[in-house]
Simulated scan of single mutants.
Amino acid sequence: MSATVALFRGINVVSISVTDLDRARDFYANVLGFGRPVYDLPEAGWIEFSPGGTGGNVSVTLAESGWTPSTGTTIVLNVEDCHRAVEELRRRGVRCEDAQVFPGFVTFASLYDPFGNRLQMCSPA
């Protein structure tokens, strides 16, 4: 049997489908706090953020396309305290589910963008 050669060296971008780039830019940049886009190409239907900085993190893109809300593939964002993050995002008007704790493993919660796309956030249990 031959050894499998690794072709992939990480994940570059995870894309979220949206119907309104201006509204999506505002939500992800200001409400979620992703900051300024790395690339902002509305003429190409593409906005790219690097929410954790540029130190090898995966970028999140907003792509205007034939859209249906994402509920299968889920982007999971790291936070210091999931319970506090739920409270803060709700204060900002974001629909969030209650945080769930798996003792000894993780605390996580789902949140939704204005288009119905599900994201999650997690912190230590």
Rank of each mutant, 00 (worst) to 15 (best):
E64K: 15
V18T: 10
P51K: 02
A125G: 05
T68E: 12
A99Y: 09
F102I: 14
D81Y: 03
Y112L: 06
V5S: 04
S110Q: 03
P69G: 09
G116Q: 04
F108N: 08
R92C: 10
F102R: 11
V38I: 02
S50E: 12
N30D: 05
T4D: 09
S110M: 01
L7V: 05
M1P: 05
A24F: 03
G55K: 12
I47H: 00
E87K: 13
W67S: 07
Y112A: 05
N117I: 03
I11V: 15
T73Q: 03
F49Y: 03
S50A: 15
A29P: 00
P42V: 06
T61Q: 07
V79N: 07
A85R: 14
G10A: 13
V13D: 10
D40E: 13
L89T: 06
F27Q: 08
V60K: 11
V13N: 13
P103A: 14
Y39L: 11
V5I: 12
C82P: 09
G72I: 12
F8A: 14
S65G: 10
R90Q: 13
L41Y: 08
D40W: 02
T19F: 10
A125F: 05
I75F: 10
R90H: 09
F105P: 02
V79G: 10
G72F: 09
G10H: 11
H83L: 02
E64T: 14
A85G: 05
P51D: 02
L111W: 00
F108T: 07
E43Y: 06
V38S: 03
F49L: 04
N117M: 03
I11F: 12
A6D: 15
G33E: 01
V94N: 12
V18F: 06
V76T: 00
A85N: 06
Q120G: 09
V86P: 14
E88Q: 14
I16W: 02
E48V: 10
P42N: 07
F49Q: 02
I47V: 08
M1S: 07
A85F: 08
E88V: 13
P69D: 12
S59K: 15
D113G: 10
G10V: 13
Y28M: 02
V94Q: 12
T4E: 11
